[in-house]
Computed example of a mutant assay.
Amino acid sequence: MTGGVAIILVGFSLIDSTSFGTLLIPVWLLLTPGKIKAGRITAYLVTVVIFYFAIGLALAAGADTFVEVLREPLAVIPSVAWRTVQAITGIGLIILSYYLEARINRRQESQTPGTPGRLARWRSRALEDADHGGATSVVKLALVGTSLEVLTMLPYLAAIGILTAADLSHAGLTAGVAAYCLLMILPAVILTIARLTMHERLTPVLTRINNWFSRLSGKAVGWTVGGIGIGILVNAVINMVILTTS
């Protein structure tokens, strides 16, 4: 695996680190008034890592088998045709990003005033688990939250594809998926340590993060999907130029 690929994977993991399950729910748990229960937040983050690690290995195994089955049939398809499909996919993702952003914004605008939205209901549940529930309830919260978003985390799915295509050993692939998952929770870990040491002084920062998610959730989805689409399109164009000039 080259250094450029590693940089791409780190970038994808940091994008995934700002998702609903990896950052927003931990922020809600950290906003709980009074003494923070570090054990429950730790249980939440450990569950998130284990869940994504297991899903990543399962996806990698499936992708590897899929590639092996189709390797010979796909070898007869010209490279230019593949790059054209890749470019169309990138354009499609860019268009999809605008649609998703508009859809989320319309849903927020149509919400009846005074009626708690989806994020508000999830926050209420997270705070209730932090205040009254035990570690088991926090683990269930992590599993439900990550299960709901795993199929929408395109950077994660793309990263698994990159790791599978990198022709790594089983140990290397396992280490790569583990490192990716740990990077995904790094911002939440940093915020947790800061909250334990700074106490209520970190509350304004956590509140701003929560408000940013609530205000820009549509744009965040659009930027993520659109960014991946742009990356795929640019890569396709560069490779097509190389193919036509070589």
Score class of each variant (00 low, 15 high):
Thr2Phe: 06
Ile95Tyr: 09
Gly34Arg: 07
Leu30Phe: 03
Trp223Gly: 01
Gly172Lys: 01
Arg208Pro: 03
Val69Ser: 11
Ile95Cys: 07
Val150Lys: 01
Leu23Asn: 09
Ala58Phe: 12
Ala126Leu: 04
Ala6Tyr: 00
Thr115His: 05
Val27Phe: 05
Glu109His: 08
Val67Thr: 13
Thr42His: 07
Ile238Pro: 00
Phe20Gly: 09
Thr89Val: 14
Leu168Gln: 11
Ile25Leu: 12
Ser147Gly: 13
Leu183Gln: 07
Leu206Tyr: 09
Val139Lys: 09
Leu24Val: 13
Val85Cys: 08
Arg71Pro: 02
Ala171Phe: 01
Asn210His: 11
Thr174Gln: 09
Val189Gln: 08
Thr22His: 05
His170Thr: 13
Leu216Trp: 15
Val189Phe: 03
Trp223Arg: 06
Ser79Ile: 03
Leu183Phe: 14
Trp223Ser: 10
Asn105Asp: 14
Val221Phe: 12
Val221Leu: 10
Ile209Met: 10
Asn235Trp: 12
Thr164Val: 14
Ile88Lys: 00
Leu127Arg: 15
Thr42Lys: 08
Pro26Arg: 06
Val144Phe: 01
Ile41Val: 15
Phe12Met: 13
Val49Glu: 09
Leu9Glu: 10
Thr89Lys: 00
Arg125Leu: 15
Val150Thr: 11
Glu128Arg: 12
Ser169Ile: 00
Thr136Tyr: 07
Ile7Lys: 06
Arg201Lys: 15
Asp129Tyr: 05
Ala130Leu: 01
Leu183Glu: 11
Ala60Leu: 05
His132Glu: 11
Cys181Pro: 04
Gly117Phe: 06
Ser137Ile: 00
Ile242Val: 13
Val49Arg: 08
Leu29Asn: 06
Leu148Thr: 04
Leu168Val: 01
Thr146His: 03
Val49Ala: 08
Leu23Met: 14
Ala165Thr: 11
Phe20Met: 12
Leu29Gln: 12
Val5Asn: 03
Ile55Asn: 10
Thr112Gln: 10
Ala6Pro: 00
Val150Ile: 14
Leu74Ile: 02
Val237Thr: 13
Val189Arg: 02
Ile232Trp: 01
Ile8Val: 15
